[in-house]
Write a protein that binds this DNA or RNA. Sequence first.
DNA 1: CTCATGTGAGACACTGATGTCTCATTCGAA
DNA 2: TTCGAATGAGACATCAGTGTCTCACATGAG
Lengths: 186, 186
Amino acid sequence: MADRTGVLEAAQRALNTDPAASMTAVAEAAGISRATVHRHFDSREALLVELGTRSLDQWEQRLDDVGVEALAAAPDAVAIRAALETLVLGYVDDSDGFGFALTDHVILASAALERRTQVLADREAVLFAAAQSVGVLRTDLPVRFFGHAIYGLLVAAREAVRVGDVARRDAGRLVLSSLLTGIAQP
Amino acid sequence: MADRTGVLEAAQRALNTDPAASMTAVAEAAGISRATVHRHFDSREALLVELGTRSLDQWEQRLDDVGVEALAAAPDAVAIRAALETLVLGYVDDSDGFGFALTDHVILASAALERRTQVLADREAVLFAAAQSVGVLRTDLPVRFFGHAIYGLLVAAREAVRVGDVARRDAGRLVLSSLLTGIAQP
DNA sequence: CTCATGTGAGACACTGATGTCTCATTCGAA
DNA sequence: TTCGAATGAGACATCAGTGTCTCACATGAG
């Protein structure tokens, strides 16, 4: 557990439990000394930024996997709808590990991460716009809002699972279903 | 601005800008000295808990205004649907001021506040259950999830407004509309 | 075996924030 | 005007966390 990745995983666990976890807490979670943690990461902020970067890496990977640009280039309603579902379910999975990053103020305050977040949000928005153009997503909502709505429901699901109102395995279905068709009886 | 309420309002402003705002920052925001802030609130935690309490007061007030229990006692689809809309729009308004409390870890960590949150969530759930029984809310989603979904969309709207993707005046409509009918084109 | 590398333990200085306290000043009511 | 209460300014001790450093020890490669 003393390698860089082990520290990151331990930090993830510790921070998911307590978002204010100290370097000492991270070291304990990793089963190593605080000195060794500092040998891997100069500062707590550096550690958090790296975790934030990894969470953005996962986000980017999801966008790659789904092939956002290809879908936008040759819009097909069925394919886009399927891609949206895959994407959201993927996010729910990812948020299991990186959920704390959704609301961590240190991570959110990093200018570099915020910039990259913007870039990824832009990429995502391309898919949303295509989805609107083929009638998959509503056109009376701003493209920019879709990403935020997904983000919000991820936070919601994470909290619901945390307090025990929702089973982890149900989270994906609930997020996707309420996101796409809402909670009202049609 | 030196009275208790003035300090609370200033703290609200300061914390909405920077959730980690120190007592010094709060004092500056209130235009008074740090000593006077401490004359009103023994500790930073006490100040945060009071702010959290006030946000729960507002929540409770919204539930009172809407008459949750009366609606549940004599379920009427139209009335319940209207109540839900009023409720959610009210929450969006309230989150303007108390938005920071949605994700503040100190407030969320308070046992007393968490307990009261649970009580209010229970009250709210009564309305949701009634809404399900009269066909206003979907029955294939757990009652417990509705509250979380609203919470998540409040966080989403707050963030969307913060980064400038959504105008404040549009937030209510977007939250309500995406909550009830989803973001997919029907 | 020997040595180099990595690690743990702990000391250390530093920082930012908190909470307490004092004292002079201000302000308002009597 | 006078007196008392509230305030501002600032000193102070305390605390938790951070980041640096040293040294002893273990471990593994040669």
